[in-house]
Design a protein around this nucleic acid. Structure first.
Lengths: 154, 154
DNA sequence: GATTATTACCCACAACTACCCACAATCTAT
DNA sequence: ATAGATTGTGGGTAGTTGTGGGTAATAATC
């Protein structure tokens, strides 16, 4: 085994077809551990993109949510917002997942998409949006970025 | 054993063929420790060249990235930009790796390339670009260069 | 209940990739 | 110096992958 299971890297250009389907890159499908049974969970990203988790990774998040007390209003809000856009999906025979219209609108997807491995999850972007966000964040916080680079890049 | 494992030094001229493949110098392949299972990770360098890591070295970077919280926007940007151009590759029966078009364009590779050992990673350069960059950097920072030399060269 | 819209599964095909073999140039060892 | 192995470079082919569309089953709407 060469690549780590449930670890995703690299960037791929794909298209959302008229039915709202996108291909999951073959490399990412191969990186899925068997216990996922070909299933991902798609949900809103913290940036305006779609986040795609292997279901076993998502289940860990769900578990943590279960342990939050429902007595606190902010806990309830957090659980609600985390879960409400999440949908588990099995990819079809051609390796595609069917996106929900809700998430397509949220991420502003339209034909051309960028699919990016984010180590333990996957992001689906409208390429134009990504460019904007990227520029904006770098402008705000470029020294923090450099600090991270210094710490992590070998 | 003469060479240190996962330690690369020296410079070699190779060609990128029409399919985008380059040879990894035999010396570098022999320097790969067995736990890499003949696998490198290629990604964008901080200079306009391709960086090639032994996969076990790269996995250390991935691990650090996993531990960054996704709550901070700059963390997400950093993870994305670090990982999006990274691809793990096993070299083929002739000792070559298949470069991605993205990285070929980024490094401006075209036929003749210079492959340079950088101790814990490998760089693949367009020879002309390297010459430019080198000249530019030396002009800017030649005293800093001398300071380093004084500290490190025995 | 009839009609329409949506989803799930199937097939088709062009483009690309991985794997194989070939060969010339270089190195190694006797 | 010569034979044999290794190394760098090129190309062919079979299989995979991304993309589109068709049809039947299911759900939604009136």
């Amino acid at each position: 085994m060469t690549t780590n299971l449930n670890t995703f890297t690299g960037e791929f250009s794909y298209t959302v077809d008229t039915k709202g389907r996108v291909n999951i890159p073959a490399k990412f499908r191969k990186a899925l551990s068997a216990d996922n049974e070909d299933t991902f969970v798609i949900t809103r990203g913290m940036d305006p993109c779609v986040w795609v988790y292997p279901i076993v990774v998502w289940q860990k998040i769900e578990n943590d949510l279960k342990n939050l007390s429902s007595l606190s209003a902010i806990n309830r809000t957090f659980v609600r917002n985390t879960v409400r856009y999440a949908t588990p999906l099995i990819y079809d025979g051609q390796g595609r997942i069917q996106l929900t219209t809700n998430l397509i609108n949220y991420a502003g997807l339209d034909k051309k998409t960028l699919i990016i491995g984010m180590v333990n999850k996957i992001e689906i972007w409208n390429p134009d949006r990504l460019k904007e966000i990227d520029k904006k964040n770098m402008k705000i916080d470029s020294t923090a970025y450099d600090d991270l680079a210094e710490k992590i890049i070998i």
